[in-house]
Design a protein around this nucleic acid. Structure first.
Lengths: 238, 238
DNA sequence: GTCTATATTCAGATAGAC
DNA sequence: GTCTATCTGAATATAGAC
């Protein structure tokens, strides 16, 4: 095929295999031998191409998150351009953030559902270097969207918005992760294992209304906190 | 202290240490030597008292989930008793399910925030035996609450209720897990590391309105699904 | 770039003295 | 019940031939 190319496909084969195996078995639960076995390359190839198992994991995410970060910022830029200084609708912000993410699941070239599930599961990985890495990769995008939400919901305390952002991330991560544990319990398979574009589209249609409902829910009552405005009315619709 | 007791505290010391370390480093990331080191017991004690590392993990959960399952079912029983055959309010069901869980965080005798965070993180553990174990432990309780929700929201397709149950579980798990990754990014520490009763109480006050808002959000539009009733009106308030 | 062979460390588990 | 000592396997990583 490619005789004098500096990169045959062994590098990508390793990345693809690692992506799938990290998703299925986690970082600690996946050995280099499993990866090189599935990729059908030599065991030493991982260290030659990436340097270490840690560096391999970082590269697995970097090749996908580069696209995701760019796309999310572009979507937000376009919204803010069209809004001409006005605050954005919460629904539009969520669409730019979570809709862009969920659309990755429909495109096999972007990792498809395999990467989505990996991403969902990795946010709770305990290894220190993974959390540090993620914090760095996400920082800029999260900051931009957080500010957009603050402007979008001026009557909601900022701390509350951060909490709800957090809760939305959790709901989506978990839905995406598609752990079978509760699926088995709840009876239906939640058609997440029917891979392909349809799964991700249905996912978005189900998830987005839930997120919006949670984000705009009435504010909690804090008997102990008098200093912050306590409005029990539902937040006005977007 | 207790000379002729059959159980000195070494068994419990192991369970406590394992609970904390599994929470912090995950199952694969925690070695027997770490556990026995923190518990200040001999390495061989784990296999003597529990048989294996897998069995130890199961026991770590069993001693907490026994209480949680009992308490959740009791709360639901009491609601259904008082309702005298009428469907329950969604908010009451969520309070019985998630409120009971979050209250564990306020009681150190029930594991406190350490166990809550462990539980949140373990739902995405990739090891097969863990997911199988959880499915078994949760089956009865999930089934009871699922049916209560079906009765409570008769106008919502059952598949949609299951999805939203799933999304609520994800939001709570993630909030509980308290991964620092996004907390660092989002700026505030979300006062989850101020352990003690207050953390869990504030957690509940913030989480419950979000869940209820998500559960009662307008139903999604499915352009591709004609067979199911398509109502775009918001679900009526509970 | 790819391979074999191996160095080194650490894991879970157990045998057997006390 | 507790301890020491050790077995056995598997992990990451690398040296060096081709």
């Amino acid at each position: 095929m490619n005789e004098n190319k500096t990169l045959p496909d062994t590098r990508e084969r390793i990345l693809d295999a690692a992506e799938r195996l990290f998703m299925e078995s986690g970082y600690e639960g996946t050995s280099m031998r499993m990866i090189t076995g599935e990729a059908e390359v030599n065991l030493a190839a991982v260290n030659y191409h990436f340097g270490s198992k840690e560096a391999l994991l970082r590269e697995v995410f970097r090749r996908r998150l580069a696209w995701l970060n760019r796309e999310r910022l572009a979507a937000l830029d376009e919204l803010e351009g069209k809004a001409a200084g006005e605050p954005l609708k919460p629904s539009a912000i969520l669409e730019a953030f979570f809709g862009t993410l969920l659309r990755m699941g429909t495109d096999e070239a972007l990792g498809g559902m395999t990467f989505l599930r990996l991403l969902g599961r990795t946010l709770t990985e305990p290894a220190d270097f993974i959390r540090t890495f993620f914090a760095g990769e996400y920082a800029e995008v999260i900051e931009r969207f957080k500010r957009a939400l603050f402007r979008s919901l001026p009557e909601v305390p900022q701390e509350e918005i951060i909490w709800r952002f957090h809760l939305m991330l959790g709901a989506v991560s978990y839905a995406i992760a598609g752990t079978d544990a509760l699926q088995v319990v709840t009876g239906c398979e939640l058609d997440l294992d029917n891979e392909g574009p349809n799964a991700a589209k249905q996912l978005a249609a189900r998830v987005m209304p839930f997120l919006l409902g949670g984000l705009r829910a009435p504010l909690p009552q804090f008997p102990a906190f008098e200093e912050q405005q306590n409005q029990s009315e539902p937040i006005k619709a977007a």
